[in-house]
């Protein structure tokens, strides 16, 4: 599998995945991610603990995030280089969509 394919298989990210990955551009623990997603998504996306735990597990298995520290039973995670590449690709896609939306907005 080429490097491009490796990234491509994760795209498009679901809304929840997108916001969780965005939150992990800097180290953050579980509940911190839940709060951050609520804020940056302007309340449009909420992540439950069951969903988040599953995401952390699979993202870590796939090498998209890595645990950076554990304090008082709270694990903090950070995006890996691979995770950053996936997120960048997703943002590229969203930028294209955004451009189209702006172009067509007047015609609606």
């Amino acid at each position: 599998m080429t490097k491009a394919d490796e990234i491509q298989k994760y795209l498009p990210l679901t809304e929840s995945m997108f916001y969780v990955m965005l939150s992990l551009v800097e180290p953050l623990h579980g509940y911190g991610v839940m709060q951050k997603v609520e804020v940056i998504s302007r309340g449009s996306v909420t992540i439950g603990p069951g969903t988040l735990y599953g995401m952390f597990t699979s993202f870590e298995e796939e090498g998209l995030i890595a645990m950076v520290k554990e304090e008082e039973r709270r694990k903090s995670y950070l995006l890996t280089a691979k995770g950053r590449r996936v997120l960048s690709k997703q943002i590229e896609r969203l930028e294209i969509m955004n451009k189209c939306a702006a172009e067509f907005k007047n015609r609606l």
Binding site: Y31, P49, K75
Partner: peptide, 25 residues
């Protein structure tokens, strides 16, 4: 009331429970 299904293959049950606790569960 909400339920999750997690087999004993879960390595970090303490962190798992703490996450729920932090979220108010």
């Amino acid at each position: 009331y909400r339920m999750d299904f997690q087999t004993s293959r879960m390595q970090d049950r303490e962190a798992y429970l703490q996450l729920f606790r932090d979220a108010g569960w």
